[in-house]
Design a protein around this nucleic acid. Structure first.
Lengths: 163, 163
DNA sequence: GTTAATATGTTATACTATAACCGTCAAGGA
DNA sequence: TCCTTGACGGTTATAGTATAACATATTAAC
């Protein structure tokens, strides 16, 4: 078997510090290239998300931020998260009212999120077929498509094993 | 051009009372066939959803129910909505924290929801391709897939025209 | 260096959802 | 028939999620 892809790694033990440093480095670079301001709160927020392959609620993120000396009121977290989502550094997981770091920032991709309902871990699998199908359906109905979100609920390999 | 399909109708003017009566009749029948109890609150809740091709928030539904003499506390609406969703008479639209009547109750289908971000109208388009692709991705990762939800955000024909 | 725009922090509040408890009522068995 | 049981629908109270509005500070542009 080949080396695990990034998506496969999400559901298995691996070197988190790699994800973290790699992810932050890519974000810094992208932000510079696009003239975005990756300020301390925003950077720290991304760091918090990267540290886990898991969806974190806004209030959970806020606790971390507050502990690190940033503001302790909801808008602090929501604003940083909104910035990250708007610029493709993170995604919102609708089903969980939660947020997760983007595995492929800057790549303009369509993805499906595989969400474990036991442990909240989230894997982001690139998947372009569905987007095309939805586009075709939209065109047929005169619907002006802007964004598609695909979320799959189930059990990750570990939790499936345990069950 | 052929007669409009049910999905196409969703975004165009049409006889609502048809949707309403047809939808209620199908629900009654299904409930009887499956031994489900479509009680007055539940039936009325479905009626409220059917009356609009639009996602309604739970509190919005609650207002209608209260006006009709049913309970006026949130659990009344949430319980009825949960029943409808659990039994395939309605769907939850994650992105809007809202609910909409199912266009194809009892048919065991996968669908994509086309959500207008202006007027909240929702069309439910049957679409099986994506489900298969997600299944394939899940298998490859050892993820035990249970449910897939696909939501598309954009503008319905009317609102696109207006913009 | 001044100005304008952006960002961060606050307080207060709105919106969404569920827990826990109680009375009612219908269905099935003694 | 009567009793038990379980589902339903109503309540109060509270938990969880998100944003509006405003003040201060920082950054960028001129």
């Amino acid at each position: 078997m080949a080396l695990p892809t990034e998506t496969e790694r999400a559901f298995h033990a691996h070197d988190h510090s790699h994800c973290l440093h790699e992810g932050l480095a890519r974000a810094e670079e992208l932000a510079r290239a696009r003239g975005l301001r990756l300020t301390p709160v925003r950077r720290r927020t991304l760091e918090i998300l990267l540290r886990e392959h898991r969806a974190l609620g806004a209030y959970e993120v806020l606790e971390h931020l507050a502990a690190d000396g940033f503001g302790r009121q909801p808008p602090v977290a929501y604003r940083a998260l909104d910035f990250l989502v708007a610029n493709g550094f993170a995604h919102r997981i609708q089903r969980l009212n939660a947020f997760t770091a983007c595995a492929h920032p800057g790549e303009d991709h369509q993805a499906v999120f595989l969400i474990c309902r036991e442990c909240q871990s989230v894997a982001e699998a690139p998947l372009d077929g569905p987007r095309d199908a939805v586009e075709a359906a939209s065109d047929a109905l005169g619907f002006r498509l802007e964004r598609v979100s695909i979320e799959a609920l189930g059990l990750c390999p570990q939790c499936a094993q345990a069950a």
